[in-house]
Simulated assay, not measured.
Amino acid sequence: MTEIKVVKKDGVGIMPPEEHLGFGEHFTDHMFIMDYDPQNGWNNPRIAPYNEFCVFPAAMVLHYGQAIFEGIKAFRTADDRVVVFRPQDYLERFNRSADALCIPRIDVDVVAEGLKKVIEIDKKWVPSTVGTALYIRPLIIATDPYVGVKVSDTYKLFIILSPVGAYYAAGFDPVSIKVEDKYVRATLGGLGEAKTPANYAMSLKAQVEAKKEGFAQVLWLDAVERKYVEEVGTMNIFFKINGEIITPELVGSILGGMTRRTVLELAKSWGLKVSERRISIDEIFAAHEQGQLEEVFGTGTAAVISPVGELSWKGKKIIINNNKTGEFAQKLFDTVTGIQYGTVEDTFGWVEEVTKL
């Protein structure tokens, strides 16, 4: 077991009332940190008070964007345990993003140990209300003080924790989504399948314009033919067409979401027909016209399952399932959150206990 140094904060912070948590606004008392250099590799794992830390103005992450991150969640179960949902899987995806950005891979076991230890120290920050969670944000940044395009030699990894409520203000109500036909997010051979800040920066312009038009998110199409569905700004996307569960295949420009993977595994275990394939926006609108488009929903760590009630594309709007949450989306949401909060048996081995309260 790796030795993790711990320096605790003097005094403790106070978590806001759970009904006022919002998302990503509040942070716990401590964070986990590691450093990387070519001589020592990843080293000096430690837990320190949550605070500012210094980087040079010339730090390469600030100039050339070499950075990756993850989003994981911990939950307080019905019997007062703190559990993390699929931490190993998320950290293995962290390494896949590292490969794409030429960042040294982490030892998943060491980082998982640090992640659990900082949660255990800050366990009082894990909210208890259903719909709340402790959001876990691992991040790696390039720290070489060098203004020139190259792969950095030094890095800093840190994990911060944030007690959160629902990601969308509408909660589990269906959201309206604009199919983006002007901007593109990612291309084949690019960074689309990596969880890196650049991908989210690319989405901002379209997102701002969509929100001005009254939409919650945008649905991206492929960057070449501009007709195949890829993903939503913060979620993967699923369609239930004539009983079949369809989601775009991972072709290299789509993030392989952990909730996406969870939904696929659940649907297959329930004996449903599941397809990962290219699907065009024309096919989706045609299925709606034929009365076969039964449900549309997004999946992501932050929102879990997000039903889609309306799709708008080039001035045409379709309403899905009378703008109501579908039966399948509801079953998925109830099952996934039930496993996370300990009210549904975890037959897949997805949750790992951190501590008891």
Rank of each mutant, 00 (worst) to 15 (best):
T301E: 14
L161K: 02
V130K: 14
K156L: 02
Q290C: 09
Q66E: 15
K178A: 06
P49R: 15
G326F: 07
V108D: 14
V149Q: 04
K356T: 05
K124E: 15
T325R: 10
I320W: 05
F69Q: 10
A198M: 07
N323M: 04
I72C: 14
E193S: 14
E327V: 02
W42E: 03
A59D: 07
Y168K: 01
E180T: 00
G189D: 01
P17W: 00
P138H: 12
I246D: 00
V82M: 12
T234M: 04
F23S: 00
V308I: 12
T301W: 14
G342M: 11
E52S: 13
V179N: 10
G326N: 12
A112Y: 12
M15G: 05
G71F: 14
Y135E: 09
I121M: 10
I339V: 11
I319G: 02
I159A: 02
V110S: 10
D89E: 11
S128G: 14
V175M: 12
N51W: 05
L221F: 10
D122Y: 06
V118N: 10
P45S: 03
K124W: 15
L21Y: 08
G165T: 01
T355Q: 10
D107Q: 06
I254A: 03
M202L: 13
K205L: 06
L311W: 10
G41S: 02
G271N: 02
Y146I: 13
L357K: 11
P127S: 12
N51Y: 08
D282V: 00
E265V: 00
A133R: 10
V118H: 12
D173E: 13
D153N: 14
W350T: 09
V232W: 08
H63Y: 13
D89F: 14
V179F: 13
S162L: 01
K240C: 06
D153I: 01
G192P: 06
H20L: 03
L264G: 03
A210T: 07
L204R: 15
G309W: 06
F348N: 04
T259G: 01
E295R: 14
G190Q: 09
H288W: 13
F32M: 00
I284H: 05
R81V: 05
Y64N: 07
S203K: 12
L134F: 15
E231M: 01
P307E: 04
F75E: 09
P16W: 02
R277W: 01
I281T: 05
D122Q: 11
G71H: 12
K150R: 11
T129P: 09
V126G: 14
G233C: 10
A186Y: 09
K212T: 04
F172C: 00
E19F: 06
L219V: 05
F172H: 03
S280D: 05
A303T: 07
F172M: 02
I339L: 08
